[in-house]
Simulated scan of single mutants.
Amino acid sequence: MVGHYVGRTRPQHAGNHGVSMRVRPVCHQIELAAETTPDMNITIRQLKVFVAAYQTRSFTLAGERMHMTQSAVSKICRELEDALEFQLFERSARTLTPVDGAAELYALALEILASVDVAERSVRSLKSLDRGRVHIAASPLIMASLMAPAIQVFHAENPAVHLELYELTTDEGIDHVLNGKADVALVSMAEPHPKLQRREGYRSSMWVACRPEHALAAAPSATLAALAAYPHIGLRAGYGFGRIVNQVLAGEGLEFTSVIGGGSLMSSLALCRYGAGIALIPGYVTELAQSLGLAVVPIEGDAIAHKLYLVSRINTRLSLAAARFLAIAEETILGISHAADGVVADQPS
Results as ranks from 00 to 15, higher is better:
residue 6 V to D: 03
residue 319 S to M: 03
residue 89 F to D: 08
residue 72 A to W: 04
residue 301 G to F: 10
residue 336 I to E: 07
residue 284 Y to A: 07
residue 341 D to S: 04
residue 324 R to Y: 02
residue 79 E to V: 00
residue 23 V to C: 09
residue 97 T to R: 13
residue 191 E to D: 13
residue 251 G to P: 03
residue 73 V to G: 05
residue 327 A to I: 06
residue 133 R to N: 14
residue 261 G to R: 12
residue 118 V to G: 06
residue 280 L to F: 06
residue 251 G to S: 09
residue 276 A to T: 04
residue 268 S to E: 05
residue 164 E to K: 15
residue 172 E to K: 15
residue 277 G to I: 00
residue 55 Q to N: 14
residue 265 L to T: 05
residue 11 P to L: 12
residue 201 G to A: 15
residue 110 L to A: 00
residue 154 F to S: 08
residue 107 A to H: 12
residue 292 L to F: 08
residue 93 A to H: 11
residue 121 R to M: 11
residue 63 G to F: 02
residue 142 I to P: 00
residue 342 G to H: 05
residue 83 A to P: 00
residue 104 E to Q: 11
residue 282 P to Y: 02
residue 153 V to Y: 07
residue 335 G to F: 07
residue 139 S to V: 06
residue 182 A to E: 05
residue 337 S to D: 02
residue 27 C to H: 10
residue 62 A to E: 04
residue 263 G to N: 11
residue 304 I to H: 11
residue 195 K to C: 09
residue 207 W to G: 04
residue 31 E to M: 12
residue 130 D to I: 09
residue 251 G to W: 04
residue 155 H to Y: 14
residue 108 L to V: 10
residue 260 I to C: 12
residue 298 P to I: 04
residue 198 R to C: 03
residue 342 G to F: 06
residue 138 A to M: 14
residue 14 A to Y: 08
residue 338 H to Q: 13
residue 148 A to Y: 05
residue 278 I to W: 01
residue 200 E to M: 10
residue 31 E to L: 06
residue 86 F to E: 01
residue 215 A to M: 04
residue 261 G to C: 09
residue 135 H to P: 00
residue 126 L to D: 03
residue 176 H to K: 10
residue 43 T to I: 05
residue 54 Y to I: 01
residue 18 G to N: 07
residue 128 S to E: 09
residue 191 E to Y: 05
residue 3 G to M: 14
residue 152 Q to T: 11
residue 28 H to W: 08
residue 321 A to P: 02
residue 184 V to S: 11
residue 88 L to K: 07
residue 49 V to L: 15
residue 53 A to H: 08
residue 200 E to G: 07
residue 26 V to E: 00
residue 122 S to I: 05
residue 53 A to W: 08
residue 249 L to K: 02
residue 348 P to Y: 06
residue 9 T to Q: 13
residue 2 V to Y: 15
residue 238 G to A: 15
residue 174 I to Q: 13
residue 317 R to H: 15
residue 199 R to W: 03
residue 212 P to L: 06
residue 47 L to F: 10
residue 290 Q to R: 14
residue 308 L to V: 09
residue 255 E to Q: 09
residue 170 T to G: 01
residue 210 C to F: 01
residue 167 E to F: 00
residue 22 R to N: 11
residue 92 S to F: 06
residue 175 D to K: 14
residue 321 A to F: 08
residue 313 R to F: 00
residue 16 N to C: 05
residue 63 G to W: 03
residue 47 L to R: 13
residue 238 G to R: 15
residue 296 V to Q: 01
residue 280 L to M: 10
residue 49 V to P: 08
residue 277 G to H: 03
residue 63 G to N: 03
residue 92 S to P: 09
residue 166 Y to T: 08
residue 333 I to C: 04
residue 303 A to C: 03
residue 164 E to P: 06
residue 253 G to D: 02
residue 242 G to Y: 15
residue 26 V to A: 09
residue 173 G to L: 08
residue 86 F to Q: 01
residue 149 P to R: 06
residue 343 V to Q: 07
residue 275 G to M: 01
residue 345 A to Q: 10
residue 32 L to C: 03
residue 278 I to E: 06
residue 1 M to D: 13
residue 60 T to G: 06
residue 264 S to K: 04
residue 343 V to P: 00
residue 164 E to H: 13
residue 312 S to D: 10
residue 276 A to W: 05
residue 121 R to E: 15
residue 137 A to H: 10
residue 99 V to L: 14
residue 296 V to G: 03
residue 221 S to H: 12
